[in-house]
Nucleic acid binder design. Sequence first.
DNA 1: CGGGAGGCTGAACACGTGTTTAGTCTGGTG
DNA 2: CACCAGACTAAACACGTGTTCAGCCTCCCG
Lengths: 237, 237
Amino acid sequence: MFSLVSMSSTDGASTPTRDRIRDAAVLRFARSGFGTSVRTIAADAGVSPALVIHHFGSKDALHRECDEHVLAGIVESKRQNMGRATDGQLLQVLAESDEHAPLLGYVMRSLQAGGDVARAFVQHMVDDARVYTREAVADGIARPSVDEDARARYLVLSSLGTLSLALTLHPPEDAEDLGATLRTFMAEHYLPMIEMFAQGFLTSRRMLDDYLLYLSDPPADGEPDDAPATETPSEEP
Amino acid sequence: MFSLVSMSSTDGASTPTRDRIRDAAVLRFARSGFGTSVRTIAADAGVSPALVIHHFGSKDALHRECDEHVLAGIVESKRQNMGRATDGQLLQVLAESDEHAPLLGYVMRSLQAGGDVARAFVQHMVDDARVYTREAVADGIARPSVDEDARARYLVLSSLGTLSLALTLHPPEDAEDLGATLRTFMAEHYLPMIEMFAQGFLTSRRMLDDYLLYLSDPPADGEPDDAPATETPSEEP
DNA sequence: CGGGAGGCTGAACACGTGTTTAGTCTGGTG
DNA sequence: CACCAGACTAAACACGTGTTCAGCCTCCCG
């Protein structure tokens, strides 16, 4: 009646074949997206399509279980590499690892598709970013922010969003080698990124101060046309 | 033999019904993504599925024609609003316009799906950003960059990527009202964004200078482990 | 040894898709 | 008027999908 070993999260005990199917699914989903057919996954695992459904109940259930498995793997990786790298470098480290690269690929797919893994992964990185920025500020390396939480969110969203969009616009010919892909991306964008981090974009704080002033004042939401920035010179969307 | 009025780009003369189908398709694609079925689009246009194929040949051809139409619309919008807004504000202006909002929605979908419209749209914005940043630098408003082109690319990719990812993670309940969606996004991210623009993140230029030095030196690609940033405190991926 | 539970499969089913086909209607031209 | 090109449709087709069904084979327990 009751399963003695409550293996993973939802249900589904761990069987060699079952695990093989799940692993094949994670790999396939990462490589070809979540539109991949059950038949393809079954072929990858060397198994009949019916067996996939037999073990997981449905394709959606398989998808969910892949999500959980990948998320658990990410958490585990973070624990393993704790201290070795700080967040940003985390991606590099994971991408180079043969074991964990597929997980990262899966996460990148999820970032494009949305859903719980994506949100959870981003939340993890935001939490980490909060810690790291706090330390950096305390060490005098980073400037303090008016809203540290918002900044942590923005930093993560901006980094991952830039990467995701760049990958979508120019998909690497070898999607397997995430490490190489990341290096290519960095080769093109590291300079402007670090430039922005080191010296910003504007020469004066005026726009920032104006906005802070605007925030402290009653924004008076009666008028529809009360945009805070009228003379912005640049491209924040 | 020859069509006297070479209407649009590829072929396909302009017929009321044809245009209605195309417009319905653009709207549907923007609202529900490119996986939408021909039958749905046909229903939206009040027409039989067969007629859609009769006019466009195939769903892919319809998709391509929507791409061209949207891109032309964007260019036209930019021409209309020339001077009214500078790039960043462009999105706001377009999103508020009842006529052009669907086009923007379509573009956002394309940014997630990749493809030519996405690349073309980004390229347009990059070209604009180059001009605007150049002016801003000349006016002493913006700091100069070591690589202005790379910075323009990064600024656009970063802005659009952040927006796209934010929308993917937290889809607005009313996807129709792009203006409200954009305002919500800005309300959350404008502060950290402008903070970054105004004062950067780091307190010193050291990491930047180190990287510039690293760039000028022979990078010596024999060694696999030659990451430029070893003691970075933060979250560039 | 007997037998049943469960991993596993090939074939089929139900359904949604893009597309085709045959045919109807209608407006303009000889 | 005759007629024909073209807009338009209902029905069907071919196909890929997720899923189910009936049955096989094997291992384990009584």
